[in-house]
């Protein structure tokens, strides 16, 4: 057999973030109401490869994912070579909004995982009118690190390999071996100091705790998904966050961990379909069969 070409299309856009131009890589597939997807710390858009390729979603949605600056195929800004990368809430929100504006997305659904889920909830609190709904995956109001983030940026060791070994704790034992290692490979490839800079945001910025009461699910619905094997954002963390957002919904995903769309795409698929159906008011035609 000859090779197979996937339907995903990748392109680049340039936007100003914090007053500086950033070249950002994005991928998309499908047509219909847009769904903008955010990757986790220390990884990139490849985490969404199965959802992007899934015709059950792309047949009636425009699925889009982009690499955050410093991640994947998005470059760091000019002058990065002397900077310490530390992601901030303000910079993260500006990045998501600028990308959505440049792509001229009309009230997309925002679906983010881990730090992407955290920023989705921040945007739900601070910019509720910009999105039609929020799917917050492995997301919570806040949890401090159970590790030392400085482990992952040292001159005497490979931060990517250590980061991958650490986050393997968050993958369920049910993950297919190939997808487990595809998921870990992204962390191994992460640029020096990038995972640490993401974790600085994820494990030190508590600002969502004060903002979470501002989320109005009547303006835009919020659905939270959490894998039962996630050691970083545990089901307890997700449940606490769900209870702090009146009108939100929560589903604990069995046999899944912190990277559900990447570590075990077949298992994640029905959960994501249900999530989309919930935040779009059931308008989606995607099947919602149980796993």
């Amino acid at each position: 057999m000859t090779g197979v070409i996937e339907p995903i299309i990748g392109r680049y856009l340039t936007v100003d973030i914090a007053g500086r131009p950033h070249r950002i890589y994005f991928e998309e597939n499908g047509a219909g109401p847009p769904v903008l997807c955010l990757h986790t710390a220390g990884a990139d858009t490849r985490q969404w490869r199965h959802i992007l390729n899934d015709s059950a979603f792309s047949s009636d949605h425009r699925i889009i994912a982009f690499d955050m600056p410093w991640h994947g195929k998005s470059l760091p800004p000019e002058g990065f070579e002397t900077e310490e990368y530390l992601l901030t809430t303000d910079c993260y929100i500006e990045t998501v909004l600028r990308v959505a504006d440049t792509l001229e997305l009309d009230k997309p659904v925002l679906a983010g995982c881990s730090m992407g889920g955290r920023i989705a909830l921040q945007i739900a609190a601070l910019h509720p009118g910009r999105f039609s709904g929020f799917v917050a995956i492995e997301a919570s109001d806040f949890q401090p690190a159970w590790y030392d983030i400085d482990w992952f940026h040292r001159p005497d060791a490979h931060g990517g390999e250590m980061g991958a070994a650490l986050v393997s704790a968050n993958i369920a034992p049910h993950a297919p071996t190939a997808e487990r290692w595809n998921t870990l490979w992204m962390f191994m490839q992460s640029g020096p100091g990038v995972f640490r800079g993401d974790l600085s945001f994820y494990t030190k910025d508590e600002s969502l705790v004060a903002n979470i009461g501002r989320i109005d699910t009547k303006v835009a619905p919020v659905h939270i998904l959490c894998g039962e094997y996630d050691l970083t954002c545990t089901p307890e963390d997700a449940t606490r966050t769900h209870r702090a957002i009146p009108g939100s919904s929560l589903e604990i995903m069995t046999e899944l961990g912190h990277f559900p769309m990447s570590e075990n795409p077949a298992r994640f698929r029905p959960y994501f379909a249900r999530a989309l159906a919930i935040v779009t008011g059931g308008k989606t035609a995607v099947g919602t069969e149980a796993a």
Partner: peptide, 28 residues
């Protein structure tokens, strides 16, 4: 929680002492 060494630690069923960085450098 029982699926990973750090899971055992998080569950309170294990502890790691000493030069933890030596472990982390050789974690995989």
């Amino acid at each position: 929680g029982f699926h990973d060494l750090f899971g055992l630690v998080k569950l309170g069923r294990a502890s790691i002492d000493g030069d933890i960085l030596s472990l982390v450098k050789n974690l995989r």
